[in-house]
């Protein structure tokens, strides 16, 4: 079936417009971060700065501050820990639910599905009360277990779907060879579910990396702040916002996300299409 050239051209044209609209805000962010703070209210406003105005002084300022590294490092610790814990815990949960019959299995899985429907922020008040009881307010430990708990339902749901599809013969063959359940789990189930685990891990990374409401509630000290609260803190001074700094810091904090996205692009799609999880 041959399609008309004009139809194909029309598709590309529309898609290009769409992509421009998608990327425009980010380009504007970067172009704003490259001009001096005083030029932000210039008239007429410009999409791109005048060439002679282009400066990296906002980046220099952000990078020269220790705070940025601390915030960046905090975000890395929190995101990586969340990803690792969630991957291990959800795989175990998913494996058992997918492959074994035990009392309460249906109830457990039903509960996991229900918690997927309740947005995490709804629970912010009782979870805060819990954080206070556990004395983890103003600590990174006040973030990691909570993020892990938030992402476990989705992760379990997705990985379970994958583990159900492992052919019975493979597992039976291993059992006949005398393998115990740990061996089957670590040697067979996990390696065969790698695509699912990888794709949920990417989403979990993004979730933890960008989370704002909970971190803003639990964390006080500058030295424990993650990047989103640090960025929002720049903006907080309502009478005087230094947009150049805000956007320079934002651009820097997007780098790891874009790297992860580009490196693991393949898994993104696998994850989305296998169980269809929203990032």
């Amino acid at each position: 079936m041959k399609e008309k050239k004009s139809v194909i051209f029309f598709r590309y044209a529309l898609l290009t417009i769409g992509v421009i609209l998608s990327c425009l805000p980010m380009i504007y962010m970067i172009s704003t971060s490259l001009r001096p703070n005083g030029a932000l209210y210039e008239y007429p406003p410009r999409f791109f700065p005048k060439l002679q105005d282009v400066t990296v002084e906002n980046y220099q300022y952000i990078i020269s501050q220790n705070k940025f590294y601390i915030n960046f490092f905090n975000s890395v610790i929190v995101s990586v820990s969340t990803v690792a814990l969630a991957a291990i815990i959800s795989s175990g949960l998913a494996f058992v639910i997918a492959r074994f019959q035990f009392p309460g299995r249906k109830v457990l899985f039903g509960f996991i599905i229900i918690t997927m429907i309740i947005p995490g922020t709804t629970l912010i008040v009782p979870q805060f009360e819990l954080a206070v009881k556990l004395k983890v307010v103003n600590k990174l430990w006040g973030l990691i277990p909570f993020y892990t708990a938030w992402v476990i339902p989705f992760s379990t749901f997705m990985i379970k779907g994958f583990m159900e599809n492992i052919p019975d013969e493979i597992i039976e063959a291993a059992t006949i060879d005398g393998a115990d359940i740990f061996t089957v789990f670590f040697r067979i189930a996990i390696p065969l579910s790698t695509p699912a685990i990888a794709s949920v891990s990417i989403f979990n990374f993004l979730t933890a990396w960008e989370e704002y409401p909970w971190a803003n509630t639990v964390i006080n000290d500058n030295a424990i702040r993650t990047l989103p609260i640090a960025i929002a803190g720049f903006f907080g001074q309502h009478q005087f916002t230094q947009w150049g700094y805000v956007f320079a810091m934002s651009a820097l904090s997007l780098i790891p996300v874009i790297l992860v996205f580009i490196l693991f692009q393949k898994y993104f799609v696998t994850g989305l299409t296998a169980g269809s999880v929203k990032g």
Partner: peptide, 26 residues
């Protein structure tokens, strides 16, 4: 299979890294 092993190794490294980071935090 090779690719999967590589991925496992990455996951393991991630776990170790995060554990050491937590230990450093403690």
């Amino acid at each position: 299979m090779n690719k999967k092993k590589k991925f496992l190794a990455i996951m393991l490294a991630v776990v170790l890294l995060s554990l050491s980071a937590i230990a450093a935090g403690a």
